[in-house]
Design a protein around this nucleic acid. Structure first.
Lengths: 148, 148
DNA sequence: TTACAATAATTGTATATACAAATGTATATA
DNA sequence: TATATACATTTGTATATACAATTATTGTAA
């Protein structure tokens, strides 16, 4: 993913500006590939991430605010995201009986099966996206990302 | 930007999956900061990028398809993005007289002044975003991004 | 115990984006 | 010169997202 080629420019971009643009280009490319992998399953990356969070709860239901905290891309409207997942029968929503302001969201058996179906495809896609990285390079890359 | 802290998990994430998540987290953080910098100017990152592309044309107008090619985040609807910029008087749109299918979009003096106003603020923000990187690390990071 | 503030989620609304279909123009071919 | 095909952009429509306002509930201090 060469910056100058990607945005078709011949002018020299200052290193810091170039870095920000480079990051955006790479993210967009990766995100597009992930989204395309999920597309046949008719689910968005956001919805998929919520399902993964709920699976991580190991049966324990999660509040909306908990989901929000754990989301990779924070969204301003998790309610409607959960609505979508409910209509697909992947999650349940009930009112928390200890604090009726809260809701408890949990993944259904249906939702778990669905995730299991996707796991393999996504694993392969992630391997493909990162095929040119050695293990050491991945560690280096993560170390540099920590600096943000 | 620590992954586990950011998504509040204690479970170990496989390195490749962690890398993809890490990239997304960092991009979202950077994008949010850039968007916040542009917000007082009432312009989106996308609109700003189109203006920058047009400035790069050095007076020569650009077609819609040229803009699309050079955009960092490809959009499915550049027409409406340009509509916004026209209504703000930052760009002009005329029909290309050699090929009437094409349109020619150019930045106005108004648009150039506006960009100049933003440049400094954005420069400072980019410096801030990357303050923990040495020059060598920036080069390393860009080299790793090239592997995607 | 009442009044007020804080919390958790939902709803309304405006805007943004994705995707497909449509429009208008130019080019190629029979 | 008709007709088909390709090209460049625009429009329609459904969905997604951002942000503010609202609703409902709980905690707390007077």
């Amino acid at each position: 993913m060469n910056v100058e080629k990607a945005i078709k420019t011949s002018v020299e971009i200052p290193l810091k500006k170039r870095t920000i643009i480079h990051l955006s280009l790479v993210y967009n490319k990766v995100n597009e590939q992930v989204a395309l992998t999920l597309k046949p399953f008719e689910i968005s990356v956001q919805q998929f991430n919520v399902l993964r969070i709920l699976r991580g709860q190991k049966g324990k239901p999660a509040n909306l605010s908990t989901i929000n905290e754990r989301m990779v891309t924070k969204m301003s409207n998790t309610t409607r995201l959960v609505d979508k997942l409910i209509s697909k029968k992947y999650v349940n929503r009930t009112i928390c009986k200890h604090n009726r302001r809260k809701v408890e969201i949990s993944i259904t058996g249906n939702g778990l099966d669905f995730l299991n179906q996707i796991d393999g495809m996504l694993f392969n896609k992630e391997e493909e996206i990162l095929r040119d990285f050695s293990n050491l390079e991945l560690i280096q890359f993560n170390t540099l990302l920590d600096k943000f």
